[in-house]
């Protein structure tokens, strides 16, 4: 396993997170340690309740760990959030129905105080990145689910954060659309060299996209395996029929199964 050369962009050491609920405390994360290097595409995979989304939210500063240390760009996550270190893509596109697609992408730019000209430049650029250049003036309801999700990715890319955090962004889409978006996402990643954290519960999706696959298991949420993918950065869709691909998928499945049996 190759160790990251540079200092990690995201670094978690013995991270714990316990939610205080009405009846009993729930341990969502237990002793999670992970380094993510610049330019990595890291997938978090595991059954529901394994803490993959919680971990992503910790990185985003949307949840506060109760133990251990976590740094993003060398800062505590909350500071990184205030420095707008990352773009976050949620499971639902969550576009504002009263704004056009371009207007939706402008939302973070307006909040961050970009000039009007800069806003328009950036909107045009990210719309092109997600292949929605002709749809800037359309309203969300005029777009398909897949296009809406691409628009929400464009919105997360608009302010040029180096990190892109994606929480099951294609979970609600059908498989054909999902394949297409996966291909586009890889191309986008190759062009922008961003560090991507990607939560999914699809094994083929995780293997196809990632340079590093983090397999997690539930109760308490913890990392059961970290797989460095030997697949090349150039990945046509049919790489999924190659023996290497099938072997990694097999290892992920084994990791998931092991996590389940001792849960």
């Amino acid at each position: 396993m190759a160790s990251p050369v540079n200092t990690p962009v995201i670094s978690a050491k013995s991270l714990d997170l316990t939610f205080q609920t009405a009846d009993a405390p729930v341990q969502a994360l237990k002793d999670v340690s992970l380094d993510i290097a610049q330019g990595d595409f890291v997938s978090f995979i595991g059954p529901s309740g394994c803490g993959k989304t919680t971990f992503l939210r910790c990185i985003a500063g949307l949840e506060t760990p109760t133990g251990g240390t976590l740094t993003v760009n060398g800062m505590p996550p909350d500071e990184a959030r205030r420095a707008r270190a990352y773009g976050y893509v949620f499971q639902a596109a969550g576009l504002y129905p009263w704004r056009t697609i371009a207007g939706n992408i402008k939302l973070p730019l307006e909040i961050m105080g970009y000039s009007k000209a800069e806003q328009n430049d950036r909107v045009a650029r990210v719309l092109e990145l997600v292949e929605l250049s002709d749809f800037g003036a359309k309203y969300p309801w005029q777009l398909s689910g897949g296009m809406q999700q691409r628009a929400s990715i464009a919105r997360a890319l608009a302010f040029d954060a180096d990190i892109l955090l994606m929480d099951e962004p294609f979970g609600a889409l059908d498989e054909i659309v999902r394949d297409h978006l996966n291909e586009q996402l890889l191309a986008l990643w190759a062009r922008t060299n961003k560090t991507i954290g990607f939560v999914t519960h699809s094994i083929p999706e995780a293997v196809y996209l990632s340079t590093k696959i983090v397999v997690m298991s539930p109760r308490p949420g913890r990392i059961s395996d970290v797989i460095e993918s030997p697949l090349p950065k150039e990945r046509p869709l049919d790489i999924r029929d190659s023996p290497e691909f099938i072997e990694i998928a097999h290892r992920v499945r084994e990791g998931l199964r092991a996590g389940h049996s001792d849960a």
Binding site: R81, G87, Y88, I111
Partner: peptide
């Protein structure tokens, strides 16, 4: 909650 989280990620 998602809409509010989104704004939080922008530090709005």
């Amino acid at each position: 909650a998602m809409q509010l989280d989104l704004l939080k990620t922008y530090n709005a």
